[in-house]
Design a protein around this nucleic acid. Structure first.
Lengths: 346, 346
DNA sequence: TTGTAGGCGTTATCAT
DNA sequence: ATGATAACGCCTACAA
């Protein structure tokens, strides 16, 4: 009288559909998962029952029984950052084509939190994982290997790393930009970076700066360095500090466009002309790079392509159990208005 | 020899932990979910086994048995839009405090797709749902009611609507901004809106414009209207068309900041001074509003608060089964540099 | 082509 | 405080 004779409809199950269509649950299941193997006649009947009852499979039960969830997970540092938001959007659009759902978690740039999130997504049955950057504990990589969960490391490409990845060479990109800056005669540099700890992209970019400097016989120790968090205001404040410490600075390079936008804003409010008095460079080429004025000279990064590519790699890995080769995507200098010759050149 | 005597370890289950600790699976389950009810001694033993085996509960099984997933879903039009990305980030951070996972799906502003996504998230066991705007089919609302899934409609507040919501009055906000514009003497207006179909925020904003005009004895038919999609370039193009159609336009109001940024850019490239020759207004107050120059006069919208508030409302609804009152958050004009008196005033 | 039935890994209700 | 054991809803050999 409690369980069996329940009168209230509740949520329809396979059982209900089976009963309504006068077939077994197995047949209903097949209609849904392998329609070709069931006769036209019964299939029509079953599908009708499905429709009228408003049946939708219970995901948990499905996952439990089938041992696959058609769900991929993505862990990003933050979604509030346009570069990840755009990449995720593309990632998701690509997955959707294959009827795969995306689960997102954000780690707030905190390694412990990221580990937790990875485990959580795996526990939830994520069939594959998108990770940002390769900088994480061995334990967690082992964990993934052991569970046989395919993953790709995105937003970076580094020949020294063994994990399947899709991205660009952050170091090389910043190195080439720095070379361009030096070629323009700049010698008194400032550099604003995001927090580098636990962020291999920021580290690599810094490394690129350093290397380019060395090439020219200069030292990274001579650049006015500011490390700060990710916001326009932080960029502005950092710019201010740099100019205070080193008033004859001719160029301030920034680890990303957001910081650069802040720097640019501050320069303007300080009455400095960009790039006549001081040059500024960014990195990422997000929307704001184009609308500030003068528009930011920056590194163009193929965010959407990375998201899309990561999706297709994961789909392949998950489907075929293969291990595709890492993909390096191009990043290039986007010349716009904030980088000019050093005033010293005159 | 196949199932039982499997030698390869595989993923540890409750069973394995139970065996290792010499207790029943029930006890292990209790250790994890209600530690207080099991004796100190056995608990320690069990937790040890958990640790050494690296056990993590299987989410699907858990959900299937417990009929709750600790997962909330969010369906947004797109994550590539800063306003949603920021709101989601806040939403997720708040959920995390209560150990709830967020599932995101994006509908690309397509109603049918949104319905699909809602059903998908529900099928995946979402305990509650965050929806954007109240504009959707009755069917889907009925579906949610029937399943007893709590949901809140965010980004809007409209007394005429019955669903639990958190947001601000889009119409009123645009109305007040329009009043301010008219007070400054502007009479030749242009308006750039995002696609209004299926987007009640865009509709409401347009309505606010229209109403404010009527109040002053003016007609919406006299404003040069451009409807376009969401991008900086679209805003720029629309601005161009407006000035072609109506060269004596003194102000171009925009349905959001992205379009306004485009308009501003185009104005500059057309050699127009803002706001001396032409004024521009935005809506949303996202990052870019502050960094363009002159900075955008716009409507400040509490994105993060909406995300956070939506989370806490949903948590309450899901926990207590209550139905909280809708919350209206304040939105106000953020006066900056792009809105000035009409040149006609001189 | 279709049905039967055993599992999937937990939770929760009873006893004990 | 702990242990059996029946759900939970679906998938999938295997049998018919």
């Amino acid at each position: 009288m409690r369980k069996q004779d329940e009168q209230i409809p509740g949520v329809p199950t396979l059982q209900d559909v089976a009963k309504a269509a006068g077939v077994s649950t197995a047949t209903v299941s097949r209609c849904l998962n392998a329609p070709s193997v069931v006769s036209e006649k019964t299939r029509v009947r079953v599908m009708e029952a499905v429709k009228t009852l408003g049946y939708a499979p219970n995901f948990s039960a499905q996952a439990l029984a089938a041992k696959r969830t058609n769900t991929f997970g993505a862990i990003v540092p933050t979604m509030a950052n346009a570069i990840f938001a755009r990449g995720l959007q593309a990632f998701q659009e690509e997955l959707q084509k294959s009827n795969i759902t995306m689960l997102v978690a954000s780690s707030s740039y905190r390694p412990e939190l990221e580990e937790e999130q990875i485990r959580a997504l795996v526990a939830r049955g994520a069939d594959a994982l998108l990770l940002i950057g390769h900088d994480r504990s061995d334990d967690i990589y082992k964990f993934l290997e052991r569970r046989g969960i395919p993953y790709v490391v995105a937003w970076v490409h580094d020949d020294g790393q063994s994990h399947v990845s899709i991205g660009f060479d952050n170091k090389l990109a910043m190195q080439s930009l720095t070379r361009a800056v030096l070629d323009l005669g700049h010698r008194r540099l400032g550099y604003i970076t995001a927090q580098r700890i636990g962020n291999d992209r920021a580290q690599a970019r810094y490394g690129g700066l350093s290397d380019a400097l060395s090439e020219s016989g200069l030292s990274i120790d001579d650049v006015a360095l500011e490390e700060t968090d990710y916001s326009i205001k932080s960029g502005a404040d950092a710019f201010d500090r740099i100019l205070k410490r080193q008033p004859d600075t001719t160029v301030v390079m920034c680890g990303n466009d957001v910081l650069a936008a802040g720097a640019l804003q501050k320069a303007r409010s300080l009455g400095l002309q960009v790039p006549k008095d001081v040059s500024i460079t960014g990195f990422d080429d997000i929307d704001i790079a184009e609308i500030v004025s003068p528009a930011l000279t920056t590194i163009h990064v193929p965010h959407r392509n990375m998201g899309r590519g990561a999706a297709s790699m994961l789909i392949e890995m998950s489907r075929d159990g293969t291990r595709p080769k890492s993909r390096e995507l191009p990043a290039h200098i986007e010349w716009r208005g904030t980088l000019g010759p050093s005033p010293d050149q005159m």
